[in-house]
Amino acid sequence: MYSARDWREYPRRYRLEAGKCKKCGKILFPARLICPKCGAREFETEMLPDTGKVLTFTVIRTAPSQFTDIAPYAIAIAELTNGVKLTAQLVDCDVNTVKVGMEVRIEFRRVQTDAYSGILSYGYKFVPKWY
């Protein structure tokens, strides 16, 4: 992966920066140039909360080339406490124990490794919320 593409996403991947529409209050992750709900174009930066619950999930057993080393791995769509939904891996648990409704926390993890010599891509993953 060319590193510029990764770098451009740092605000979202590293800090969970979302955009809150100044007119209708909709929180968009990632932030956009125009609000899909009301059409307004002014946003303020808002950080996403770091906890939520699993809405749906799967276990990827046939993985694309970048992820074959960690398969099988769980992918979940979770709804965060402010209602924003996002997709990420759900790690640090037995993939066979993942359930809809499970409470999760967001942690900073390495998401992709570009072979042995390329860039390391970091971002968010879900982990079970156990404390």
Binding site: R12, I60, T62, Y73, A88, V111
Partner: peptide, 11 residues
Amino acid sequence: EYEVFHGATFP
């Protein structure tokens, strides 16, 4: 950036 990056596949 928000699905495939995280390891989502079509299945």
